[in-house]
C-alpha cells in the first residue's frame, strides 16, 4: 500500500501510522539484517519488502555479540560481518534505498556498542534518511543521553516493553517513547516459537491505556496466521526471523527478492483479510 503522506504529520513514522489509522489498517513491519547474506542483497530486498506490502523497514546493524537473538538472526549477523559490514555501510544502503523510496520509514535495530562507536550517529543517520533506532540492550534508565541526541535530529528512539515489564515501568516507558512502542510478545530470543496470542491481547489492552503512541508486536510472528492473530490486537506486527531465514536459503538476489515479496504479500493479505 503506497499513498502520499498527509501534510501535517511530523516525520515518516508518524505519517505512516496516521495514514494507516485513517485507512483502518495495521502496519506490517519487517526486519532483515543489513548485509546478509551479502551486501548486494539488502537494498533490493528492502524494495521487495515494500512491494510485498511492508510499511516500515527495520534494518539490523550487524553486531559481534547479538545476545537477544535466536539462531536465525545470530547466523545473519555472522554472515554479514564476514562480508565486512559496518554501520557506515548500513547507512550507505539506506541512502541508496532513499533514491527510489522517499516515504517508507526505515528504523535501524541493534546493540548499543555499534552506536557508541559512532559519536555523530544521530546527524549521520538523519542525513542518510533513517527515521529511528531500536536498541535491544538500552533500557529506560540508561537511554537519556542517546534519546537527547536522536531527538535533536528528529529521530525516534523506539522503546521496548516485555511481558515481564511491571505496570509502573511500562507506564514510564510508554510516556517517554516516540515513533512507536515495540511490544516483545514472549520471553525469549527472536524467532522463538512460544507465541501466546491470548496473553498478548490481554497485555495490549493494558498498554493501550498508557499512551496514544502506536504499538507494534514482535518476536515469534512468522506467517500470515500469526500476523493476523496478533495484528488484531496491535497497530502493527514485526516479522523478522522468518524473513531472515528465507534470505539465508536463497541462492541469489533475484530469488531472494521474489521469495521476500511473495512471503510479505501473503502476510499482508492475512492481516488485511
Amino acid at each position: 500500500m503506497r499513498v502520499a503522506p498527509p501534510e501535517a504529520a511530523q516525520g515518516r513514522i508518524a505519517e505512516l501510522f496516521e495514514l494507516l489509522k485513517a485507512h483502518n489498517q495495521k502496519a506490517l513491519v519487517t526486519f532483515i539484517t543489513a548485509g546478509d547474506p551479502g551486501p548486494e542483497f539488502t537494498v533490493p530486498a528492502m524494495h521487495s519488502l515494500v512491494a510485498g506490502g511492508a510499511n516500515l523497514l527495520e534494518l539490523g546493524i550487524p553486531f559481534s555479540d547479538p545476545e537477544a537473538e535466536g539462531p536465525a538472526i545470530q547466523a545473519a549477523n555472522e554472515r554479514a560481518l564476514a562480508q565486512g559490514m559496518t554501520l557506515t555501510k548500513v547507512m550507505e544502503m539506506v541512502v541508496e534505498f532513499r533514491q527510489q523510496d522517499a516515504t517508507t520509514p526505515v528504523v535501524l535495530m541493534g546493540y548499543l556498542n555499534s552506536v557508541l562507536a559512532m559519536p555523530d550517529f544521530p546527524v549521520r543517520a538523519r542525513s542518510a534518511g533513517i527515521d529511528g533506532l531500536i536498541m535491544v540492550n538500552l533500557p529506560l534508565e540508561e537511554a537519556a543521553d542517546l534519546q537527547r541526541g536522536l531527538s535533536a535530529e528528529g529521530l525516534d528512539l523506539v522503546s521496548l516493553i516485555a511481558p515481564t515489564t511491571a505496570d509502573r515501568r511500562a507506564q514510564e516507558i510508554a510516556t517517554r517513547s516516540t515513533g512507536f512502542l515495540y511490544y516483545v510478545s514472549l520471553k525469549g530470543t527472536t524467532g522463538s516459537g512460544a507465541l501466546a496470542v491470548d496473553e498478548v491481547a490481554e497485555r495490549m489492552k493494558f498498554l493501550r491505556t498508557l499512551s496514544d503512541v502506536p504499538i507494534c508486536v514482535g518476536f515469534g510472528i512468522k506467517d500470515a496466521a500469526s500476523a493476523a492473530a496478533v495484528g488484531a490486537h496491535a497497530d502493527g506486527v514485526v516479522v523478522g526471523s522468518a524473513l531472515v531465514q528465507l534470505m539465508a536459503d536463497a541462492p541469489d538476489v533475484a530469488t531472494a527478492n521474489q521469495r521476500l515479496q511473495t512471503a510479505t504479500a501473503a502476510i499482508r493479505q492475512g492481516m488485511d483479510a
Partner: peptide, 19 residues
C-alpha cells in the same frame, strides 16, 4: 542504579529488567 562513575549500569534486553 549500579553505576561506578560512568561505568557499570544495566544494559540488557527489557525482558530481564524485572528479574
Amino acid at each position: 542504579n549500579g553505576h561506578f562513575g560512568q561505568f557499570g549500569g544495566r544494559f540488557v534486553a527489557e525482558t530481564l529488567t524485572h528479574a
